[in-house]
């Protein structure tokens, strides 16, 4: 039995709308989404293209702001923060992992790992020790002086995961983290996610790959900018369990189920 209710809410959407004005039309990319991510969650977000996945990812990552509604990180509403403060939220609370790894090519692995701390003014002996530890942790010890180009795709993604952990974020936010990898490497990365998860790291992944999604605890399905359903993958055969989840999450987790 889980003790979900006792775990802290670290990221929360409260009736989030995100509308874009395109000429005369208003595109409602997100149309009233409410969801909670609690400490230790392993959540995947799925949906067809145009469902609002990317918009949700951008807001979760602090790269975009809701048009209306609240996005809370660690209990603090960040939807109205200044650009600088939002940058700090990204730098301190969120660990990004991208589909195309997004390492900076001219920097060594060590330097890439230090980038997030550099912007917090925390580069030094400590950051180096931490980089060494995390490189070891993702299985890349001894490659700190390599350039990204000298590594395979899977290795690059491991570096990216280590980089995402450098700032001890509230949660990891992965965008199609295995999209550019072959199936063997994909499995290795997903295994690594499992390991991290076991260590208590909170993970949110956005994907369109059902195989990836089913490795997570829960899958949030988006459709037309709204939550369609929330699936608990740990239950038999991925059976639809909307109601139970709503119960587990204190009733406020989703507005899904009636899309």
């Amino acid at each position: 039995m889980q003790t979900t209710s006792e775990r802290a809410v670290i990221a929360e959407f409260v009736d989030v709308h995100r509308h874009y004005v395109m000429g005369k039309n208003v595109v409602r990319a997100l149309n009233g989404v409410s969801v909670q991510v609690k400490k230790g969650d392993y959540l995947s977000i799925m949906g067809r293209s145009g469902s609002g996945k990317s918009t949700m990812l951008n807001i979760l990552g602090g790269l975009d702001r809701p048009t209306t509604g609240q996005y809370r990180v660690g209990g603090r509403d960040v939807s109205q923060l200044s650009d600088d403060d939002l940058s700090d939220v990204r730098g301190r609370e969120i660990g990004f992992i991208f589909q195309s790894f997004n390492l900076i090519p001219q920097l060594s692995v060590l330097e890439n790992l230090e980038v997030p701390l550099f912007y917090q003014g925390r580069v030094g002996a400590e950051s180096r020790a931490k980089a060494e530890y995390l490189a070891e942790r993702v299985g890349l010890g001894g490659r700190l002086e390599h350039r990204p180009m000298e590594l395979s795709g899977g290795q690059q993604q491991r570096v990216a995961i280590a980089r995402a952990l450098m700032n001890d974020p509230l949660f990891l936010l992965a965008d199609e983290a295995t999209g550019n990898l072959d199936s063997n490497t994909e499995k290795e990365i997903l295994d690594l996610f499992d390991d991290l998860r076991a260590d208590g790291v909170t993970i949110v992944i956005v994907t369109h790959n059902p195989k990836v999604a089913e490795r997570s605890d829960h899958t949030l399905w988006l459709k037309d900018g709204q939550v369609e359903k929330l699936v608990d993958n740990r239950l038999v055969d991925g059976r639809l369990v909307d109601n139970r989840l709503v119960d587990n999450r204190g009733g406020a987790a989703t507005n899904g189920g009636h899309a």
Binding site: L63, D84, R92, F96, F98, N102, Y119
Partner: peptide, 16 residues
Amino acid sequence: TREIGIRRALGAKKKH
């Protein structure tokens, strides 16, 4: 451009 995006995502402010 992409590097700029990465750096921004990793917490770089405009001034950085």
